[in-house]
Amino acid sequence: MLLLDHVSIGVPDLDAARPFYDAIMEALGVSKVYDRVDAIGYGARCSADDVQSSCLAVYLDQSPIATNRRHWCFKASTRDQVDSFHRRGLATGGRSDGGPGVRPHYHEHYYGAFLFDPAGNRVEAVCHAGEPADPPISR
């Protein structure tokens, strides 16, 4: 069962966020579905014929982004996608909060990477599929 239908992330500067989210969503194989003055969207909304989709909206929002434990985690199909998510996020204004690697404290095959977007929102990509002989890394 998919838990979330859609999620929204607020940023104070959409022009700074756009290249970052374009890059990390493309790395995860997610299409941009709209690009407006006040928001950009990725993925696909559910419908009566498609109840498995989900979408992300990145909205222009001048509210302060404070340090907290909130973050958004996106599913990756492969570990290469997680690597690309992290690499491309760094190349487009993101900051690392933990490079790609196995995090066995979640489960033995949890392969994730963490970034802060240009505004300071924390995002993650994770692949749950296992691969043999992966050394764990600390976060």
Rank of each mutant, 00 (worst) to 15 (best):
S47I: 01
D83I: 05
P118W: 03
L14A: 05
S84H: 12
F85A: 09
G43N: 03
I137Q: 09
S54P: 01
A66L: 14
C127I: 09
T92N: 15
L115V: 00
W72D: 08
P118M: 03
H128R: 11
H128A: 12
C73A: 15
Y21N: 02
S84K: 15
V30S: 07
H107M: 11
R95W: 00
T67F: 14
A66S: 12
Y111E: 00
Y34S: 12
Y110R: 00
K75W: 12
L60P: 02
V11R: 10
P100Y: 08
G41L: 03
G29H: 06
V33Q: 12
P64V: 07
M1D: 11
V126W: 05
E26G: 11
R87N: 01
I24S: 04
R45M: 15
D134H: 14
S138Y: 08
S53D: 00
R18S: 11
S53F: 00
R88L: 15
A44L: 10
I65M: 07
D35W: 01
L2V: 11
A27I: 05
Y42V: 09
N121P: 07
T67I: 14
V58D: 01
G98N: 02
I9T: 07
F85R: 06
G93Q: 06
R69K: 12
H109M: 05
H71L: 11
G29E: 13
I40K: 08
G112M: 08
G112F: 05
T67H: 12
H107C: 08
R122Q: 14
T67A: 15
G43M: 00
S8Y: 06
L14C: 06
D15Y: 04
N121H: 13
G29Y: 09
G41N: 05
H105S: 10
R45D: 14
E26L: 07
L56A: 01
V33F: 14
S31R: 15
D49K: 10
D49C: 04
V37W: 12
R18A: 10
S53Y: 02
R139W: 12
A27D: 06
I65G: 10
S96V: 02
T92A: 12
D97E: 14
P132S: 13
G10E: 01
D49N: 09
D49P: 02
A76E: 08
D80G: 14
G10N: 01
S84W: 00
R79H: 10
P132M: 06
L56Q: 01
S84M: 13
V7C: 08
P19M: 01
C127T: 02
D5I: 06
D134Q: 15
D49E: 13
D83P: 00
K32D: 10
